[in-house]
């Protein structure tokens, strides 16, 4: 299916948010995730199914003021 990952269109075979993170090599413990603008806690990633066209954000710590 085609989804939007951090603003870029990607094609994935992952069925869950957890699988998507693994597929793209993210360090699951050091990122936070949101699906269609809603926060998805770490504990819920396994049970969070992806659907065609969803928007996923994977964020990490960054310098800020």
């Amino acid at each position: 299916m085609r989804i939007d990952l951090n603003g870029a269109p990607v094609t994935t075979t992952a069925r869950t948010l957890a699988a998507l993170l693994a597929e793209h090599g993210f360090d699951a413990a050091s990122v936070a995730t949101a699906l269609n603008g809603q926060f998805v806690p770490r504990s819920a990633r396994d049970a969070t199914a992806l659907e065609d066209g969803v928007k996923v954000e994977v964020l990490s710590p960054m310098q800020g003021g």
């Binding site: 936070a32 954000e57 964020l59 990490s60 710590p61 960054m62 800020g64």
Partner: peptide
Amino acid sequence: ITVSLRREGYGGSAFR
């Protein structure tokens, strides 16, 4: 110290 969140890939491990 204040910090922010950005899309993974733009930061660095040095910051962590």
